[in-house]
Design a protein around this nucleic acid. Structure first.
Lengths: 334, 334
DNA sequence: CTGTGCCGTCGAAGCGCTTCGACGAGCCTA
DNA sequence: TAGGCTCGTCGAAGCGCTTCGACGGCACAG
């Protein structure tokens, strides 16, 4: 293994000089710099991560806590994770993948071992038990999601309330008066995951303002569950002419079922979704949808947390404005 | 930050004694051990990861390289990643998430910086350019997938050839003589991703043996693409009575399209898939399928790599035997 | 009662890097 | 021409941990 000392010797300078060439924290003459850089290349030197972390108390690692549950909104999670990893690299950081089990204990462990310079948390619950710890330690952290009390942490998320409102507006504008909301699995609501409740609040409020009747039903992602939910909705509110789906896995089954009932989309029923654009665009009927900007969330979270590490940036809550893309699944009320 | 020295002082012993309590590498009297452990708890001590890595040249980190492309077999990837992370924790390791871009350079970087004790690679291509490096460095590595030349590395994967064979057997046993294979996106074959080609080989070989006619068509995961592919297949081989789908995203569209054509599954057409069990079970018609055992792959990869780190275990290729679960989507040829 | 060996503990030497203070050389200013 | 700068470089002191060799104290055998 090539060390700093090897490079120094090879270049005929002292170790500290090599270090300063690498970090740029002191000025180095052009000739020395070049000589050192050549040696680095020739020897194939890479700084030892452990030694560097020890000496500088900076690991250049970001910890990313993802939910353990593999049954929920998986594509979004994956997209965020990948976006986090790529953005982090662009800033010189690597990403540690932590699964959510043992939330607070994991936070403490990472904290105590100084393994990561900062944490990014996904799947945030309204009263998340990792938050008190995070605040206590004071290490930079960013949540992707919005807890009930976002003080002294940073948060990034889609403005789900606005997204909900946008859906209702769009449908109301097309004349719909009875809208059914197919939601995430019941477990998501039971855990008080923020985004689901905020969407609902946004839907309801604008619904009230616009005089639209809403029926909300949580729903598992399987075909059978969607079928059951649809049947219930149609029984309880036969006049329903539009659906808002917030459940990646439910969109395709819903479209299939409607087709089976010979109810044409969008002529007889309108369907819109809150999901990643890719999912919406690839559905059997390209869906009018509010996009969940997974990549941007990941990128923003990293940039925010890096800023904090570097002493710039402060605690703030950023809610990205929702964007509605009209495709082929919504039309005027029949 | 609490250090080893703090614990030692608090417990009234030397630093090395605390270290030995932690590592168990020398015998310690019960009384001393207890005293030290109490101090550790009381002070909330966590060993500094950097210092530990530096002193022991062991980081207790596993690097996991996942593909950058978010458009392919995402659920399997995610499931594997999570399984890797959880299993790794159970063995005392954390997981570094590396996206596949710059493959060889990344391998060299991790290698040189001693950031990880071992690497796990996913999305392995037949002639993967990361392999030569991996062999050269001699650091423990496990591939999830199977390259053309698996010498001097370890590999775990589903036996996709056997999986393909199993599908053909099952369908041939039901009397089908014309089978269409809906494959992954063309790009997957162009990159010579091992699993796709091996499946095809298995399908073809057993097809030949059993006198079954196979028609293979790569296919994007969107509804429109599946529709186009299905149309082509039905035009080219009107007698097709069974489908094998190896493309997570294509199963649901295919079922929906067949339903639309009023071709009942399994009465008129049989459909089977090679995909995670969860996907198969949740489809609109529960699918007879060969499961991709994502969790096991992840778990096995970690156990293998940990064994190598500890000096046990050697280079080997393990192909998990495919398991066929008969559900409701396959039946006798009409 | 002395010699031998083991058990439990300690001190010290690094691991490879960052960073602080020091210092010589060259330059400008007075 | 002496004094004071700045610039570029060096040496040394850690960062917090692991690990090796050493060393007392005790139990046992002779």
């Amino acid at each position: 293994m090539v060390t700093l000392a090897d490079v120094a010797q090879h270049a005929g300078v002292s170790a500290s000089t090599v270090s300063y060439v690498l970090s740029g924290k002191r000025s180095i003459s052009a000739s020395t710099r070049e000589r050192v850089e050549r040696s680095i290349d020739q020897l194939g030197y890479h700084p030892n991560a452990g030694a560097r972390a020890l000496a500088s108390s900076k690991s250049n690692i970001l910890a990313l806590m993802v939910p353990l549950r593999t049954d929920m909104y998986v594509p979004v999670m994956m997209e965020i994770a990948i976006s986090v990893a790529t953005t982090a690299r662009a800033h010189g950081y690597d990403v540690l993948l932590l699964t959510g089990e043992e939330g607070p204990a994991t936070v403490r462990r990472i904290e105590g071992s100084a393994l990561a310079d900062a944490m990014i948390l996904m799947d945030v619950e309204l009263h998340d038990d990792r938050l008190p710890l995070l605040r206590e330690t004071g290490r930079p952290a960013v949540l992707i999601g919005l807890p009930a009390d976002p003080s002294r942490v940073s948060c990034v998320d889609l403005d789900f309330a606005a997204a909900g409102a946008l859906c209702v507006e769009h449908l109301a504008g097309l004349g719909h008066r009875d809208i059914a909301v197919i939601g995430e699995a019941p477990a998501v609501y039971e855990r008080h995951t923020g985004f689901a409740e905020r969407t609902l609040a946004g839907l309801r409020e604008r619904g009230r303002e616009l005089g639209v009747r809403l029926l909300h039903r949580p729903c598992e992602g399987s075909y059978a569950a969607v079928a059951a939910t649809l049947a219930r909705v149609q029984e309880e509110r036969p006049g329903t002419t539009a659906f808002v789906v917030q459940n990646e896995a439910a969109t395709d089954p819903l479209l299939a079922l409607l087709r089976q009932q010979r109810r044409a989309v969008p002529e007889d029923v309108s369907v819109m979704a809150i999901c990643p654009d890719q999912v919406a665009a690839h559905a059997s009927v390209p869906l009018t949808a509010v996009a969940v900007p997974a990549q941007e969330l990941g990128r923003y979270a990293v940039e925010q947390v890096v800023a904090k590490i570097e002493g710039r940036g402060s605690d703030e809550v950023v809610l990205l404005a929702p964007e509605l893309t009209v495709r082929e699944s919504t039309g005027p009320r029949p």
